[in-house]
Design a protein around this nucleic acid. Structure first.
Length: 708
DNA sequence: ATTAGGG
DNA sequence: CCCTAAT
């Protein structure tokens, strides 16, 4: 049935080339059967996921932007959507009746108070009200889970509940008896599952995280989601209201929900449990956003979120439809493709024990819920969620060389959709679908963000790029980027290159390849130290390094790029406008990890400046730090600035790794020289013309000789 | 995208 | 290091 609906939306056209296998756990349950069967669904889910995400982001962004008009429209649209969703829910309910989802929904509705319905809505469409949402978001971002969130978290939770609540009521109407009976069953079932899958839970956690942020993660965690869901559900059911624990986890929860949703969506018919989760998709999306924005690492707390989401799932069928679908698609697609990728390139390690993962994932969770099992599960999940990915760099034997990371989510470009109030929900849906389809049809590629900056050089090794286990992996992010390439292309799904991820493989290959790095790395310590060493020599050598073939991936613009506007298909003539969203600071913002310049780096810098002068940092970068991705020309400029300052102060005042006086002398010398030879820009010509007399008439423009 | 400067 | 303005 679900499928049918989807088809109706017109997504049929989209097909996923290859369907990845569902995670073990899933398979066992047989939840994914359907998914597997219907490739289309997978694609659809992906689209949906992306769309949902975009939508959410858009909303949030709009809210932030203070665009009253937009808000209004959105709000209206939302309302309409809700109605539709409700209708959908009915259908879903019918479908799901046999499943537990119904039950869950019922329970949820009960839990949720109707008071917050409006708020709820807002939540769903943050942009509309946004203040509350924003706050939440920010909080989430912080996701410290500490007390601070308590109130906020609760609020959000409540809202969520409310939202769901709306739906639930309907559900009840439709299937009163069912709902009640189901509730009890659900819990039990969930618990059972949890117990049964408990061991796999790690995956769940991961899934939670993933779901929130993005499909990819989900894929990795696949198995886990179910478990987590179960866990989550339990808490929710028990205390729909914000428990302390819940509050803490709230952020995470959202994420979890997502996963759940996805899973559930995928598994809708398969198992009861799954269904229960489905409802959360919406939340998941939001959360995903939030998560994305914030650090992903707080996953652990998510357990509670799961619970919430579960509840939610049951509650809103309509929402579910939408979200669920999205979630599913995302889930399926993402999962498969990610898995593939990882497998291809590197071995994916489930981080059951994942100590490392723990480290990676922040432990904001400290406040985890009291339940040991729960928390453990969560933790595992957290670890597991991000399946550990081991770099291809097999060459690096030292464990330090390996970079373990968990991808909590992928950022997806936001879609900005503006629809007239008069537009029908259906038209809105189709509009979103088209937009999403268009994006997917073009294919997505994975983008890597390091410290908020996109890493476009696929040929670089992780080490070179500055991605090492020691570094803050939290500064590492991934994005699913549409291939906007040139002009917007038609929606036609014909080309489902969606999986294009082929890129990934290539990438991996490339990265692995770089010879120089590898060798260097081997000895290396996790730290960039190797890099620095290389740097010294690099000047000329590095140039030899294979040129990056960014073309494939690099070109696509990151999230910033708007999805291509899709030709309006709707009668309503809804316009989908890609919206560039400035990346939220919170996301990128994290300060880059501090990386003091080594003496060798300073030497290289001094040398380069002596030759090039102080106004050509770009050249300096290319000349001497081309391989050091973590050193930007701005960094070099800043370093020079500090070097000059350092050289001018007394040695006692200097801090940090002492720089050889000899180098400082050269710094002063070069600084002095280039200060007088403003010619840097025009080069020697002017300098000569200027006839500056320092005894250095070198037109050459290079201090080199003089200094030397 | 770079550069220059302030914070 | 970050951020911004001006290129």
């Amino acid at each position: 049935m679900v499928l049918k609906k989807r088809l109706d939306y017109g997504f049929n056209g989209f097909q996923v080339p290859v369907i990845p296998r569902a995670p073990r756990s899933v398979r066992r349950r047989g939840l994914f059967k359907k998914k597997i069967e219907d490739n289309q669904i997978c694609a659809f889910e992906l689209l949906a996921t992306v769309a949902g995400k975009l939508l959410l982001e858009t909303e949030s962004s709009s809210a932030s932007s203070n665009e009253a008009e937009v808000k209004d429209q959105l709000v209206v649209g939302i309302d309409a959507i809700k109605q539709e969703q409700q209708d959908d829910e009915r259908l879903l309910k019918t479908e799901c009746l046999d499943q537990e989802s119904c039950e869950e929904s019922v329970s949820v509705s009960e839990l949720v108070s109707q008071e917050h319905n409006q708020k709820f809505i807002l939540k769903e469409f943050p942009h509309a009200e946004s203040d509350a949402l924003l706050e939440r978001t920010s909080i989430v971002t912080n996701s410290d889970c500490s007390g601070k969130f308590g109130s906020d978290m609760k609020l959000s939770i409540c809202k969520s509940k409310n939202v769901f609540g709306k739906f639930p009521s309907k559900v009840k109407r439709g299937f009163p008896g069912i709902g009640e009976s189901c509730d009890g069953n659900l819990d039990n079932g969930i618990r059972r599952q949890l117990e049964a899958e408990g061991e796999e839970m790690g995956g769940l956690t991961v899934a939670d995280t993933c779901s929130l942020q993005d499909p990819v993660e989900i894929c990795m965690n696949f198995p886990a989601p179910v478990n987590s869901d179960c866990k989550v559900k339990l808490p929710l059911c028990r205390d729909p209201i914000p428990n302390a624990s819940f509050h803490k986890h709230r952020n995470d929860v959202k994420v979890v929900n997502r996963d759940d949703d996805e899973n559930s969506s995928g598994c809708n018919q398969r198992s009861t449990k799954v269904k229960a989760f489905r409802p959360s998709p919406r939340i998941a999306d939001r959360r995903i956003r939030k998560l994305l924005t914030s650090k992903y690492w707080k996953v652990a707390p998510k357990l509670k979120d799961y619970d919430i989401s579960n509840t939610d799932c049951g509650i809103k069928p309509a929402c579910r439809n939408r979200k669920t679908y999205y979630g599913r698609e995302r889930y399926q697609r993402d999962t498969p493709f990610k898995k593939r990728k990882w497998f291809d390139k590197s071995s994916v390690v489930t981080s059951d024990g994942g100590v490392s993962s723990e480290s990676i994932s922040n432990s904001p969770e400290k406040g985890m819920s009291g339940d040991k099992s729960g928390s453990d599960a969560l933790l595992h999940g957290a670890n597991g969620i991000s399946s550990t990915v081991r770099g291809h760099q097999a060459s690096f034997h030292s464990r330090d060389s390996h970079v373990r990371l968990s991808i909590k989510s992928f950022r997806v470009p936001e879609l900005f959709i503006e629809v007239p109030e008069s537009a029908t929900v259906g038209s809105l849906k189709s509009t979103v679908m088209e937009a999403v389809t268009a994006i997917l049809s073009r294919g997505l590629h994975v983008g890597v963000l390091l410290r908020g900056k996109k890493v476009s050089d696929d040929d670089r090794t992780l080490l070179q790029t500055g991605i090492s286990q020691n570094d803050n992996l939290d500064t590492l992010g991934f994005t699913l980027e549409p291939n906007l390439a040139q002009a917007p292309s038609p929606l036609c799904p014909e080309d489902p290159p969606f999986l294009i991820p082929c890129d990934t493989p290539q990438r991996s290959t490339r990265s692995t390849v770089t010879p120089l790095l590898d060798s260097g790395v081997s000895d290396a310590s996790p730290d960039p130290s190797p890099v620095s060493n290389l740097n010294n020599h690099v000047e000329s050598n590095y140039d030899l390094v294979p040129s990056p073939s960014d073309v494939l991936i690099g070109k696509t613009t990151p999230e910033t790029k708007a999805l291509v506007a899709v030709p309006a298909m709707n009668v309503e003539a809804l316009a989908v406008v890609p919206m560039n969203q400035k990346i939220r600071r919170s996301e990128l913002a994290q300060r880059r990890t501090r990386r003091p310049f080594s003496v060798s780096e300073v030497e290289a810098l001094v040398h380069a400046v002596e030759k090039l002068g102080t106004g050509r940092w770009r050249d300096v970068k290319i000349r001497s730090f081309d391989n050091a991705n973590h050193r930007t020309y701005v960094d070099l400029k800043d370093k020079w600035k500090t070097l000059v300052h350092t050289a001018q102060i007394s040695p006692q005042q200097r801090r940090g790794e002492p720089v050889p006086q000899e180098l400082l002398d050269r710094v002063l010398s070069a600084h002095s020289y280039w200060s007088q030879h403003q010619a840097k820009q025009h080069g020697k010509h002017q300098a000569g013309t200027l006839k500056i007399t320092e005894g250095q008439a070198e037109e050459d423009g290079s201090l080199k000789e003089e200094v030397i």
